[in-house]
Simulated scan of single mutants.
Amino acid sequence: MDQRARAVLWARGILADPNVALVGMTWDREVHGFRFRVETLQGQVLAERLLPRIAGRSRLGVDRDDMPSWAHDETDHLSWSERRLIQAPLANPIQAYREICREAGTFFVRCGPEVSDGDDLAAQYRHFLAQPDLQRANEGPGVDWRKSPRTTGSVLDALRDVIREMAQADLSDDEIRRAKRRPRTPPLSGYAERVRPSRQRQGLACPPELGMRLYASGATLFPNGGVG
């Protein structure tokens, strides 16, 4: 239960941090591109871009000159990338943004946008459900975010609601005290010792409850973490 309490404290810290920005992305089938959006917790839009679909670009003859103008701007990301970024899982919008800029031959000024290891929403939500077993994350109906009828703005609204509900969970003084202790990390062995935590987490599944909440219309979160 300590991990669940830490997830609740993490969510409270997110809401209290004025430097947080939320990042989301949805597929727009009308224009065949990805709607990328960055907002503050208060809903102020910091960036809104249409990311072109570049799969099969060699067959389509797409080159750097065909990329959008913002992808060639080395400073395009500076208004938001230095914030504390929380991205909607499954879509991986920040990775998509970086890929577009890389295809355009753009080198980021300072560091490019990244999500810190501790701000992985999918991991925090697994702990919040008190179901840290990764196999559990692969169970359930899940959702295909590319087929979501929601706009990127509505996905970010749902993301805010999830963080707020996590933050509002009741914790006793004893749970808070235990959660603030430094967690014990078991020693790793072999190859795992040489792999950064961020690389170990690439491809970990998003809990189906969270995917449904963010991308499926009409999904609501029950108090026990279920979706209906």
Rank of each mutant, 00 (worst) to 15 (best):
M1A: 13
R4Q: 11
R6S: 00
R6A: 04
A7M: 10
L9K: 05
R12I: 07
R12A: 09
G13K: 07
G13H: 07
V20P: 03
V20A: 05
G24S: 03
M25R: 05
M25D: 00
W27Y: 15
R29E: 15
G33R: 04
F36M: 13
V38I: 09
V38H: 06
Q42L: 12
L46C: 00
R53Q: 14
G61F: 10
D66G: 13
W70D: 01
H72L: 14
W80D: 00
E82S: 12
A96Y: 00
R98K: 12
E103I: 03
F107G: 07
V109A: 14
C111A: 09
E114F: 12
D119P: 00
D119R: 01
L121T: 14
A122T: 11
Q124V: 08
A130Y: 05
D133E: 11
R136N: 07
R136P: 03
N138L: 11
N138Q: 11
V143N: 05
V143K: 01
D144G: 00
W145N: 02
V155L: 06
L159M: 15
Q168M: 13
R177H: 09
P183I: 10
R199M: 07
Q202F: 11
P207L: 02
Y215G: 01
A216F: 06
A219E: 15
T220I: 03
T220M: 03
N224W: 12
V227I: 14
